[in-house]
Nucleic acid binder design. Sequence first.
DNA 1: GTTAAAATTCAAACACTGTTCGAAAATGTT
DNA 2: AACATTTTCGAACAGTGTTTGAATTTTAAC
Lengths: 207, 207
Amino acid sequence: MRTTATPRERRYQRTQQAILEAAGDIIRSEGIGALSMRSIAERIDYSPAGLYEYYSGKEEIVAAVCQVAFDQLAAMLRSTDPALPPSDFLRECGLNYVRFATENTDAFLLAFTYLPLHAAAALPDTGIEAQLCASPAFRVLQEAVERCVAAGLFQERPGWGVFEMSIACWQMVHGVAMLAVTVLRQQPGLDLSRRAIEVLQAGLAAR
Amino acid sequence: MRTTATPRERRYQRTQQAILEAAGDIIRSEGIGALSMRSIAERIDYSPAGLYEYYSGKEEIVAAVCQVAFDQLAAMLRSTDPALPPSDFLRECGLNYVRFATENTDAFLLAFTYLPLHAAAALPDTGIEAQLCASPAFRVLQEAVERCVAAGLFQERPGWGVFEMSIACWQMVHGVAMLAVTVLRQQPGLDLSRRAIEVLQAGLAAR
DNA sequence: GTTAAAATTCAAACACTGTTCGAAAATGTT
DNA sequence: AACATTTTCGAACAGTGTTTGAATTTTAAC
């Protein structure tokens, strides 16, 4: 059982990672529209054709960039201080979701618009709930809701459980985030994220 | 003062409209990715170069398609029955927003992701509030909120007026819509739009 | 009706994109 | 060092948005 990679394997992984990082850098500094196989190749001193040894095509690179974005989103959500009281914890999770979006605008957009539409055919109609609950970012939101329920802040009802409440939370923070990175981009004076999330919480508490 | 267009002018407008409709048809039936100058031209029996007489480029065609989408969105919101009580009226407006999105998925996506990013440079930092209040769709949401305020359902406070409440409403319905057309596309079992909007309303009422 | 001017439409070309393929170069094995 | 395998690349291809000048059509002037 080989636990140590060969020099060739290590080199392969380094190049694969370099491609992925170059793609992320281009998106961050120049936007989605500037991402091309040629721009990536140029950034790492490769020929465009060489990238196909590591990724089957541009689509796979973009998918990998999106996966990185999802991982980072989950990490940001998990960075919320668990010592906070349940209500504050939920609010801070929501704010961290929005913060991630506004700090990684184009990657966030890509992850939540491009990827779902291009992976849609592969998503089975059944099991979306299981998939969401397995998603690290959604899981943090769900845990935050669970804590509020456990603390008696939110009441579960038939057809209105933790899962449904978590979806509602997601819908709100996602709306805040999407508008913040698109129509309301560069409008700090209109940053009403905190307010919106507080409205959401008040609504969940009132039901 | 000529009030009647010449045959030439009428033909020009007909062709311009045909281009726009072809673009809309392609997006609706084959998705955003299938939209190209060649696909549009082929659909109306033109050469791609001919389209530049009517639109400065693909970007302008897309912008026109988005404008049509905004107009249709406003029309759908305005189709909400004004005889409804204020609370029901607001909820139905929200549901109509989501309904529009799910019935025009790709156009909605285009209008709320592509257009804002490509028009961003032209948007002055000041005046976004005025622009939103001049937007027909936002205006309907705003009126719905005004009616709830007037009916005593929602309370205005310093820094939390009709405008801010309307933004919160928009953020929620937009989040519902964006998830419905992307991650949760084709997941009718997860259509929790009504629930989310009711949570929003409960939250607004509780503040 | 004829001719000239203006407007419309298009073919060809260009630069750019994602991708493929076979040759060249680099690395690994004996 | 010779040979085999893997990696990298140049060239080519098909597709994209766009431009340009020629061809065609329409309109205006006489």
